[in-house]
Amino acid sequence: MARTENIAAVFKRGFINENPIMRHVLGICSTLAATNLVANTLVMSAGLVFALSMSCLTVSILRSITPMRIRMMVQTLIIASYVIIVDIIIKAYLPDISEALGPYVGLIITNCIVMGRCEAYARSNPPMPSFLDGLAVGLGYTAVLLIIAIFRESLGFGTIMGYRVMPEGFTTWTVMVMAPGAFFMLGIFVWIVRTYFPQTYEENKGGEKS
């Protein structure tokens, strides 16, 4: 009983309380580019969730034998290895999406979230909770990106996953699928979240670095 509660708590914390986008506005660099189409977002997020949870697991397993001073380098190498796996899989099975995502899959390596979770949680916790933590944070991140992607694709193309959702005569907002649309959407999202859920960022006033 206690164990299931524990897992639920880890999930809730990762999914809502420490949601990287709502709380810190971190890790948006590489993945914002993928939110113009829902399909791209799904692939990109799946890659991120895999890389994040597996990196957390590995970092956690190796935590007792990793020398303190070179731990950043070790973490980076672990993350890079998993990102290479993700990249090869996407290239092999989804060549079209791989083409569309371009270099952004590789940029998961420098996504601040992955490093942040390894450093903040996996480094000092046993493997199983670390894995779940990575999974929860990754899924929380995916949820936010999906919301943004759904708005961008339906307003920009009038479709979701390629299916028409807007009525025939709908004038598409081209700006939504271009870069400014992504910034506006994320800005408005952050605004709404911070207005209605102010507790998610209260303790985070200081200079948060990437």
């Binding site: 400014p180 910034f183 506006f184 994320l186 800005g187 408005i188 605004w191 911070r194 102010p198």
Partner: peptide
């Protein structure tokens, strides 16, 4: 209050990005 910090920065960035298009 909710717009302070990252929110307004992102919206300004959107406007800048619009200008750069």
């Amino acid at each position: 209050k909710g717009l302070e910090g990252p929110g307004i920065t992102l919206i300004i960035t959107g406007l800048l990005s619009l200008a750069f298009t």
